[in-house]
Amino acid sequence: MRVVLAEDLYLLREGLSQLLRAHGFEIAAAVESGPELSAALAEHRPDVAVVDVRLPPSYTDEGLRAAIEARRQVPGLPVLVLSQHVEQLYARELLADGSGGVGYLLKDRVLNADQFIDAVNRVASGGTVMDPDVIAKLLANRPAAGRIDQLTAREREVLALMAEGRSNAAISQRLFVSEGAVGKHTASIFTKLNLSVSDDDNRRVLAVLAYLNSLRSQA
């Protein structure tokens, strides 16, 4: 699988390259600035891009903007965005086109190599991965909002894990329950949130996030 990597810190760039190579990825390009990233994305059309939000020359949200622009030109281009801090604002912008294949993680998550590689793989295959911090903020700030209210504590846990892009199997492992029980929970969540059931991993995350987002924007 071919990866374009954009990160301005040399050490971190090399570390990420090594980590990805060690897990069988091919580094098509490892760049250190926004313009280079745009060029590399256009040239290599990678299977997945791993992008730092803040890049030279402006050291603002150069990376994020380059990624969103690239996804505008190549819809569904899988992009995993890394940052030192997570903002719901950025998460919404990344999800705005609704075509999946998006990830948004804290750089800290790189420390757990297995989880990080798993996230890269899920993004590459069109899934959506949101950092638990983003999900936590979305859920925490609206404890009394509408239908979310009706969820049990367990269902909320499941919803949060679902929003991180995990499959029922992964959730069942995480919560130490059977996969069937998770299935029941998700079905119940969908009913309570008034969402039609779908097997598609990606759509279900998008639906959940769209629901949470709309909850905030409509009010």
Partner: peptide
């Protein structure tokens, strides 16, 4: 950081999103 990256308006938007 969002202030440095996006300026006041978006930083305030981010604040609004994070507010309870």
């Amino acid at each position: 950081p969002v202030l440095a990256e996006r300026g006041l308006v978006d930083a305030v938007r981010a604040l609004a999103l994070d507010s309870p």
